[in-house]
């Protein structure tokens, strides 16, 4: 990211803004990072503002998530001896379905209003568009989870609000959003938009789904952290791999928009 800011651009007063950067590599790096963070912050604020005004993604995610929980309740109650046995799976499927719905809408403004072209013309680093979108998606999905998870807990009579489970949910959400943001940008530019996103996303997410469901189940059962660690470890590896890979490839997805 820093290397794309040429030294000449940094020395320009306009690029520097009000900050006077002392000479030297460290200062330049710090300065580049500052600038990068400001770009990300501005883009993130834009997405959050749009969402605050329209509440498009949040409401539909929430309603769909609660609906899935309700459907699962009836789908499993009749046969399973204890609903608690299928509970971790239900929670994650509800999160994934609701989240996929939200991700599918995450580039709809860029698509419908053509605002991506404007963004691409801005003198911002392309990857900052990814970082901002990713953060916005994480915020939206977590916001939906804040409601969905307690609802799930009371519907299925599971004590879910343990620090370990919260950590697993957050780790799972990060990995989910990391891949989902890239695929959402791709799917919105294909013919069968709504269908394409889950078809692309779910197979890639399978390791994350397996790990999250396993870890959540073990923690609900009150297993010690040591038994869960292997799965949490896998989640962390998944998150790191996909944060890095998605960060690197995202600019190829948006280089020609519309």
């Amino acid at each position: 990211m820093e290397q794309q800011l040429s030294p000449a651009a940094i020395d320009e007063p306009a690029a520097r803004g009000a900050v006077v950067a002392p000479p030297g590599v460290v200062a330049r790096t710090v300065h580049g990072l500052n600038r990068y963070l400001r770009e990300v912050g501005a883009l993130l604020w834009k997405d959050l503002l749009i969402e605050l005004r329209t509440r498009d993604a949040f409401v539909s995610m929430l309603v769909f998530g609660v609906l899935s929980l309700t459907v699962f309740n009836f789908a499993f109650e009749l046969r399973a001896d204890s609903v608690a046995l299928v509970a971790p799976g239900v929670l994650w499927v509800a999160i994934l379905f609701a989240g996929t719905l939200g991700l599918g809408r995450s580039f709809s403004h860029e698509r419908e209003r053509g605002s991506m072209e404007g963004l691409l013309l801005c003198p911002v680093d392309r990857s900052s568009i990814y970082v901002a979108k990713l953060l916005a998606n994480i915020v939206f999905i977590v916001a939906a989870e804040v409601v969905l998870v307690p609802v799930f807990g009371s519907f299925f009579d599971v004590s879910i609000l343990k620090p370990g489970i919260v950590a697993v949910i957050i780790l799972g959400t990060i990995g989910f959003a990391a891949v989902g943001t890239v695929f959402a940008a791709m799917a919105v530019n294909t013919r069968a938009r709504e269908v394409m996103l889950p078809i692309l996303l779910l197979p890639i997410l399978l390791p994350l789904i397996i790990a999250s469901v396993k870890a959540t189940g073990l923690l609900i059962d009150g297993e010690p952290w040591s038994a869960t660690w292997a799965w949490v470890n896998l989640l962390i590896v998944f998150d790191v791999v996909y944060l890095v890979v998605s960060f690197l490839v995202f600019e190829y997805v948006i280089e020609d928009w519309g």
């Binding site: 197979p203 390791p207 396993k214 896998l234 998605s246 490839v249």
Partner: peptide, 17 residues
């Protein structure tokens, strides 16, 4: 690229599973 990055993760997860 994204799909291939998944291969070791899928492998690890199904074997752990």
């Amino acid at each position: 690229i994204i799909g291939f990055a998944d291969v070791p993760l899928v492998f690890a997860s199904v074997y752990l599973w």
